[in-house]
Design a protein around this nucleic acid. Structure first.
Ligand SMILES: Nc1ccn([C@H]2C[C@H](O)[C@@H](COP(=O)(O)OP(=O)(O)OP(=O)(O)O)O2)c(=O)n1
Ligand SMILES: [Mg+2]
Length: 598
DNA sequence: CTTGGCGTCGTCC
DNA sequence: TGGACGACG
């Protein structure tokens, strides 16, 4: 009787563990990503120790990515270029490209897009987690693979050359030799008769294939973690790098967690992790199992408490959203100490630079993803303040002047000039950071067009799925007359943040899409101009743009020559009869920027 | 110019 | 809703 009770309880626990869910979650993480991007561009650097720096004027610039050769010398992120040279004299430092006097990350974003596109050929459920990471839900592809392939377990061993199992004997780095992984992992493979573990082995075969495809098609290596949820997959991915993959099954959670530092777990790398460590006097995630749900909730709150309670048992309900493009597009710049922005002119200049970059990226985004941002948030950090201030305004069209103007007004409201010397504004306290971010995207367009990327990623058969099972399910005939707020593609798993024990209904068809309409509402200013007559026409164009914006701004209608208007280029009050002269200033500004592009 | 600089996402209120 | 803040890459 008592035994059967215990048995029942054990079953309940097993079901609650994510291993019991049968889900397969993978994190793909590119190896030293920016370095690989630059090495692809400059193949002569391939076998050299290498790091990426931005802004090399001060102390040789800051390092933001380091390859594995240079890491051997102790070079790491956040070092100055100078310091890296001291540690590794042979290191090659590649600078981040600059445009408009700021770092330009577009190369890396594009490369990231290439990777996401390859990934989307393998499963319809992908979440872009960062510029170089994506979570994949391989639950369905694994099922399909099992249903369409008769395999014997020996085949696994041959296929899984770069695969580790977290917490196994050979899993620490004590053996660096080429010990035969098939033998060293053999025991685990043999004893892995639970279906949860079997699906992870199958997943490893698929992931190996995915990684090979990425290498062949875009030329980058990556590492991967293979498990049942995001937390475990992320943890596993970091265990063996570069160019390797790690399985972390539920059965290995306890042994792995007994030595895993709290801060290594996703979301515990910051203040919360420190709090947990300090309040409970523990170091490793596994030690959290000693505490009851009640105690954890008392100490850390209801939500965080139950999250911790499950987390330390390998359970994590975090949803994998279906999205391979960003939900916001932003750009910003710091102006530390000596370079802080002290004058209105300086602030306006940098607003102009940032707005131009933003509009450029937004326009590319619109053609690529048939969507339009509806709002801009400007963040700025006044000297002396602990944190930055944010103000949001509507973005009716992709127009640089409008963004500059509204941002300037926002900054002026939150940060009044303290002194006004000789007709130009001077703040005694400067601006240390400005950031512009566009968001609230709406899908747009007429007809049932989809972007190229969406078509290729969602509508096609998964690459390793046999022809027997079809995932395609195109919803037709639905009328969409307005632009629709961008939402993630979903109709799949029901995942709650509470530990409900629900059998996942994994229906066969998983790829549905938003019905979108084709849409081309934005005027392309000067798009037909040739390079030759560009400058000749430029002035006119600038003037027209400025006037156009002035008139379209409700509170800046020009009535007579002596009225002061808010210039939409800079937000400054300008008398109408000096407006033209004032615009010369903006014209000069625009030429300045053109010259910086080259 | 002390963990930098630039960029994303999610939660809380 | 927007805005502050945390966490991450
Ligand atoms: N604080 C950070 C962290 C990362 N990155 C950029 C540069 C990295 O190349 C890329 C990916 O970050 P990762 O943390 O994944 O680091 P790497 O890919 O460079 O190395 P690893 O092989 O350890 O993943 O993001 C950055 O600019 N600033
Ligand atoms: Mg990486």
């Amino acid at each position: 009787m008592i035994e059967s009770m215990i048995d029942l309880l054990t079953r309940v626990v097993l079901i609650m563990e994510d291993g019991g869910s049968g889900k397969v979650v993978v994190l793909v993480d590119m190896d030293c990503f920016y370095v690989q991007v630059e090495k692809r561009l400059h193949p002569e650097l391939k076998d050299k120790p290498c790091a990426i720096v931005q802004y090399n004027k001060w102390q040789g610039g800051s390092i933001i990515a380091v390859d594995y050769e240079a890491r051997k010398y102790g070079v790491k992120r956040s070092l100055k270029g100078k310091e890296a040279k001291e540690k590794c004299p042979g290191i090659h430092l590649v600078q981040v490209p600059e445009k408009r006097r700021k770092a330009d990350l577009s190369n890396y974003r594009k490369a990231s897009g290439e990777v996401m596109k390859v990934l989307s050929g393998f499963t319809s459920v992908i979440e872009r987690a960062s510029i170089d990471e994506a979570f994949l839900d391989l639950t369905e592809p694994v099922k399909d693979y099992i249903n369409s392939n008769s395999f014997d377990s020996l085949e696994f061993h041959a296929d899984l050359k770069s695969t580790h199992v977290a917490g196994c004997n050979d899993d620490d780095d004590t053996h660096k030799d080429d010990c035969d992984l098939r033998i060293s992992r053999g025991d685990w493979f043999k004893s892995s008769c639970s279906s949860d573990e079997r699906v992870l082995i199958v997943a490893a075969i698929l992931v190996q294939r995915i990684r090979e495809t990425i290498l062949n098609e875009v030329g980058f290596t990556c590492s991967a973690g293979i498990s049942h949820n995001k937390m475990l997959a992320k943890l596993a991915a970091g265990m063996h790098k570069p160019n390797q993959q790690t399985i972390l099954p539920q059965s290995q959670v306890d042994v792995v967690f007994s030595t895993t530092l709290l801060k290594k777990v996703r979301h515990l790398g910051g203040k919360l992790g420190e709090q947990v460590q300090d309040k409970l006097k523990i170091e490793c995630v596994g030690q959290l199992q000693e505490y009851s749900l009640k105690v954890l909730q008392e100490k850390f709150g209801l939500k965080t408490g139950s999250w911790l309670y499950e987390l330390c048992r390998g359970i994590c309900h975090e949803k994998i959203s279906n999205r391979i493009i960003t939900k916001s597009i932003g750009c910003g710049k710091n102006f530390p100490g000596p370079s802080k922005l002290k004058t209105a002119k300086a602030v306006k200049y940098w607003l102009e630079q940032l707005s131009r970059e933003l509009v450029e990226r937004l326009e590319e985004d619109m053609t690529e993803n048939t969507r339009q941002a509806q709002s801009i948030t400007v963040h700025f950090l006044p000297e002396g303040q602990a944190s930055s201030v944010a103000r949001t305004f509507a973005l009716p069209s992709y127009n640089t002047s409008l963004i500059v103007n509204n941002s300037w007004n926002a900054i002026n409201k939150g940060h009044k000039p303290v002194t006004n010397e000789e007709s130009h504004l001077t703040w005694t306290t400067g601006i240390l950071n400005i950031h512009l971010s566009a968001g609230k995207f709406v899908q747009c367009g007429k007809g049932h067009m989809k972007s190229l990327l969406q078509l290729m990623s969602s509508d096609q058969e998964c690459s390793f799925v046999s022809a027997s099972s079809s995932h395609s399910s195109i919803i037709t005939g639905k009328e969409v007359t307005q632009m629709t707020l961008c939402k993630e593609e979903r109709e799949d798993a029901v995942l709650t943040t509470t530990p409900t024990i629900t059998e996942q209904d994994q229906s066969l068809e998983t790829s549905s899409m938003n019905i979108t309409k084709f849409f081309t509402p934005i005027k392309r200013k000067g798009s037909l101009e040739t390079q030759l007559d560009r400058n000749a026409k430029r002035r006119e164009v600038v003037l027209e743009e400025i006037k156009g914006t002035l008139e379209s701004d409700d509170d800046t209608i020009i009535d007579n020559q002596f009225e002061a208007v808010l210039c939409s280029e800079c937000g400054e009050e300008v008398l109408k009869f000096v407006l033209e002269e004032h615009m010369d200033y903006h014209f000069a500004l625009s030429l300045d920027k053109d010259s910086q592009i080259n």
